[in-house]
Computed example of a mutant assay.
Amino acid sequence: MKKLYLFPIFCFLFIFSCKSDEKIESIETVNPVVNFNIDAVPYAKLSTYAFFKGDLKDLNPSTKVIPYEPASSLFTDYALKKRFIWMPDGVKANYDGDDKSLNFPLGTVLIKNFYYNTIQPGNTTKILETRLMIKKSSGWVFAEYLWNDAQTEAELVTGTNFTTGSSVNITFKKENNDVVTTDYRIPSESECFACHKLDNKPVPIGVKPQNLNVSYNYPNGLKNQLQKLVDEGYLQSFPSNIVSTVNYKDTSKPLDIRLRSYLDINCAHCHQENARCDYRAIRLSFSQTTNLSKIGVCVMADEPIDPSLERIIMPGNPSKSVMHFRLSSVNESNRMPLLGRTIVHDEGLDLLKQWINTLNQNCP
């Protein structure tokens, strides 16, 4: 008679072989299966999904929860980010263009955790928020989770009682050892929609092939992120000739490519057709900014700010360039981006300044 082997609910018989005595030779346990009911999400607690195994704060992904990182990252008051993709069994995303987000199937969840590892005093690590985008039959929906001080759980705050968002006062140390205190912004659903809006529908921003066509250091080694999605069964295929963005911090890359990559991830989602700032004079998608007028070089400002700021980009003169002024401002009426930051991104501003100083054409 065969013996019956019972395992805990979170364990699976992964590999086995039978010999004459029918002894099970090899058993491997795997991570908990993600808990996802598309009719019930978003759940009240982040832990309910089982996206992460072990202590929740470790953000150690469960099976088929795949980490990713765009070539350049959106600036959010120097917050660090850990991003993941999860999809249900039997479905795949499709390539739809270098500069268009992957066409994800129903049930896809994009997971983005915001944290600091230099919270003062003591350089401690603290996760502030986790943002989910979930693709339901009605389209993408937002789910904002706010972490408790004990770092044991994150609670859903998206809804009718969180229409104005909130702020968390933090003090952290930058890489240059400057200590910064700010009211970090936890966005409301309407604020999320403002940046993620295209054709009046919510869409993802960073998961474009042009941003993912770079290597990531997975536990098993470096691999192209798009190829990883293919290997995991999450993506049908992708072309070999994708025109890709770069890490704007990588000084080995051309200055103009770095600047265009920075503007794409930080600004292009609003400055494009049928998006929040489509009435503006500039278009900042990476695929368009080979044309310098799209960035605003010699383009007249489309609203009055200061008489000395006539051009969006004044070649060779950052102090007379509207874009430089907006990136250096923390005033809510003047700063760009409008949302997502409360302090100046010094490195991004310096990148823009360097690039403007290389331009030598005369404006008409």
Rank of each mutant, 00 (worst) to 15 (best):
H269V: 14
H269P: 04
H271L: 09
H271W: 05
Q272S: 13
E273A: 15
E273W: 10
E273R: 12
A275E: 05
A275M: 07
C277N: 15
C277W: 02
D278Q: 10
D278M: 11
D278S: 10
D278E: 11
Y279T: 14
Y279S: 15
Y279A: 15
R280I: 01
R280N: 13
I282M: 07
R283Q: 12
L284S: 02
L284E: 02
L284W: 08
S285F: 05
S285L: 13
F286W: 10
F286G: 03
S287P: 03
S287N: 13
Q288N: 14
Q288K: 12
T289M: 09
N291Y: 04
N291F: 11
K294S: 11
I295F: 13
I295W: 11
I295H: 07
G296L: 12
V297G: 02
C298Q: 10
V299D: 07
M300Y: 14
M300F: 14
A301I: 07
D302I: 07
D302A: 08
D302L: 11
E303F: 15
P304L: 11
I305C: 07
I305P: 01
S308I: 11
E310P: 07
E310T: 15
E310H: 15
R311L: 14
I312C: 04
I312A: 06
I313L: 01
I313C: 05
I313G: 03
M314K: 15
M314C: 08
P315E: 13
G316L: 09
G316N: 02
N317V: 09
N317R: 09
N317T: 13
N317G: 01
P318T: 12
S319F: 10
S319K: 10
K320E: 15
S321N: 01
S321H: 03
S321A: 03
V322G: 01
V322E: 02
H324D: 07
F325R: 01
R326I: 00
R326N: 05
L327W: 11
L327P: 00
S329N: 04
V330K: 04
N331D: 09
N331P: 00
E332W: 09
S333R: 12
S333H: 04
S333E: 13
N334E: 13
R335G: 00
M336D: 00
M336H: 02
L338K: 14
L339C: 00
L339Y: 07
L339D: 01
L339P: 00
R341I: 03
T342W: 01
I343N: 05
I343K: 03
I343P: 03
V344L: 03
V344Q: 04
V344I: 10
H345F: 07
D346C: 01
D346Y: 12
D346V: 08
E347H: 06
E347V: 05
E347S: 04
E347N: 00
E347C: 00
G348A: 02
G348E: 03
L349E: 00
L349R: 08
D350K: 09
D350N: 10
L351H: 06
L352N: 02
L352D: 01
K353A: 08
K353P: 04
